[in-house]
Structure formats: C-alpha cells, structure tokens
C-alpha cells in the first residue's frame, strides 16, 4: 500500500511496516510545493490514525522528533504563505475597490458638508455645493477674487458674507483641494471598476451595469460565491435585515436588495417591482454563472430579460385593488 505524506511517498507492508520510501529533498520551498499538490489528491491517503512523525523517523527522513517538528513548522508556514499570495484574485481586487469607493463616498459627503458650512460664512449666496463648491474655492478663495466674467460675480460683490482673512483663506483653499482630490479619486476608482468588470464578468456587467455588478460580487464575497447563490438570494442581497426580520417574525419578505438601484426596477411602477426583481435576479444569477464558468459573452441574455420585463408590465398595467376592509385587520380584533 502506498502512502503520500508531506515528506515523501511510503510503501507499506500489510502489518504497517515500511517496505520502501521515496523521500523528498529537505528543501522547505520544495516540500511546501509538494504539500500543496497533495491537498487535492484523494489518492494514497494515510490510513486513519497513521503516525506520520514515527514513520518519518523510521525511514530516516529526520533524525529526531524535534527536527521533524521544526521542519514541519517551516513547511506549513511556507505552504500557507504561497496560498495567501495566490489568494488575491481579480474579483478580490474589485471588491477592495468597491469598498474603497464606499468609504470615499462617505468621507467626501461629510467633508463637502463641512466645507459648505465653513465657506457659507463668507459667501452664503454662492448656491454651490459638493464638487462645484470645492472647485470654486480652489479657483478663487475669497469671493473678492471672483473674475468679472464669472456668473457669480455680482452675487459675490453684494454678498452678506464676512470678509475672508488671508489665514482663513489659505486654510479653506487647502481643505477644498483635499475634497477635490477625493472627488478625483472617486472617478478614478469608478473607471477602474468599470474597465475591470468588463473583463472579469462581461455578462453580469451587461445585465447589472458595472457598479451594481461589482457591488453584488462584493457582498457575496467573490464571483464564485455569487455564481453559487440561488437567484432568490441574489434578489435580496443587501436586504439581510429585512430578510431576517421576515424569517423570524411575520414581517413581509423583502422584494429587492441592492438590485433596487437597477433602472429596470426603480423605474417600474411599485406594483410590478417584486416581479421585475425576481426576473432580474434570475438573469443576474445566470450571468454570474456564465461569467464564472465560461467567461464567454452571451448576447441572448439581455434580450430575454427585456422580453420578460415587457410581458410583466403588459400583464399588470394597473395597480392591484387595495384589500377590502374585512381582511387582516378584523381578525386582530377578534383575537382580542
């Protein structure tokens, strides 16, 4: 009987004695690579309860148990390091980008709000906010510097805002520059996600759009996991709070999670959104599977989805009648 171990292949006799051994060289990296290749092989497994360390000493791979353990320590460590360096797949990169984007959105929003409040003391009439305000401040600083051809020139001249001192102006300009660069970074990350999604998951990108597709992968954890999800799960990804409330108590089931941001759903009238969400989720799940397992573009998917949505809308042109009095409510009264 042959046995594969991390230090070599052993030929065992019927009574458990070692007949022959083919030992690997005592090189940590090589042993680690061997160990990795054994991970997925189901052949020549050591029998249950097999004492590896005793066998290693017996066939003279090591001289002592302490040598066995210190070598095994090095080898397992190196194996893990190899595995970790290979674990950053393209979908993991996209996930990092999506999460960075969320952080940046949150930060830019609160910083822009701060800038709006702060600069509002000096030029409240500007009517600008967000990126436009940040750009304005970077360009002019104090409202006294607004160019005469700028549409805000008149307002700036007659503003009730306080005079902006030089020291404050420097501070505000620097702050605005930071905000601008964050907006810049946001565009950069969005472009990164868009171009990489097109490569990683072309079908998902066609159906969901790059941002929503990336978000789905991010919440699922990887493209592989997303491909393994049933479409009913994809339909409610991002609505876990509502879903568990529904499972634990009598709360209504959520109709859609993050896929609500898809234009097919949020432009649909409310009474078909659940149906549309179900159809969309079904196609999203197909798309994710095609992307993960074949990575070929399937052009029929988008057409099939549009056809399905058209049918749903045609079959439900009007909102359903509100439930007549005498439905759920009187039951409650009776129970009292």
């Amino acid at each position: 009987m042959k046995i594969s171990t991390w230090f070599g292949v052993l030929e065992m006799g019927s009574k458990g004695e070692i007949l022959a051994s083919e030992l690997f060289p005592k090189d940590v990296r090589e042993l680690a690579l061997h160990s990795l290749s054994l991970r997925d092989s189901r052949q020549n497994l050591p029998p249950e309860g097999f004492d590896l360390k005793a066998a290693a000493v017996e066939c003279r791979f090591v001289d002592s148990l302490s040598e066995y353990y210190s070598l095994l320590h090095e080898v397992t460590l190196d194996t893990v390091k190899i595995q970790i360096s290979g674990s950053l797949t393209p979908d993991q990169r996209i996930i990092q980008a999506v999460e960075a984007l969320d952080d940046i959105n949150e930060t830019t929003n609160s910083l822009s709000e701060r800038l709006f409040e702060w600069y509002g003391g000096y030029f409240p009439e500007s009517g600008l906010n967000g990126e436009a305000l940040a750009l304005f401040i970077v360009k002019y600083g104090s409202r006294e510097n607004v160019a005469t051809d700028d549409p805000l020139c008149l307002k700036a001249r007659d503003s009730m805002g306080a005079k902006l001192e030089a020291a404050d102006e420097m501070l505000l300009k620097g702050f605005a520059e930071s905000v601008c660069s964050l907006y810049e970074r946001r565009k950069q990350i969005e472009a990164y996600i868009e171009s990489n999604m097109e490569v990683l998951a072309p079908n998902l990108t066609t159906i969901a759009g790059p941002m929503l597709g990336a978000r789905l992968i991010s919440i699922a954890g990887s493209l592989e996991k997303l491909a393994a999800f049933p479409s009913s799960t994809i339909q409610v990804i991002g609505a876990s709070k509502a879903l568990f409330k529904h499972l634990r108590s009598r709360a209504p089931s959520p109709k859609h999670g993050v896929i609500f941001s898809h234009p097919l759903i949020n432009t649909s009238p409310w009474w078909v959104r659940g149906k549309v969400a179900r159809a969309l989720a079904a196609k999203l799940s197909l798309a994710a599977r095609i992307d993960f397992y074949s990575a070929k573009k399937d052009i029929s998917l988008e057409g099939a989805l549009e056809e399905k949505i058209r049918k749903i809308r045609a079959a439900n042109p009007r909102p359903p009648q509100k439930r007549q009095e005498g439905g759920a409510k009187p039951q409650k009264k009776r129970r009292k």
Partner: peptide
C-alpha cells in the same frame, strides 16, 4: 511560535490535510 502548524484548508475536508496532521 514553533509549536503552531498553520494549515489553510477547509475543515470539512480533512483528507486535504491528512498528509500533514498526526493523530
């Protein structure tokens, strides 16, 4: 720590680390 042997594997598939772990 010399007495720790890290294994990156699925605990549901003990066969995948049978060539490393002793009784």
């Amino acid at each position: 720590r010399k007495n720790i042997f890290p294994i990156l594997a699925d605990a549901g598939k003990p066969d995948s680390y049978a060539h490393i772990v002793e009784p």
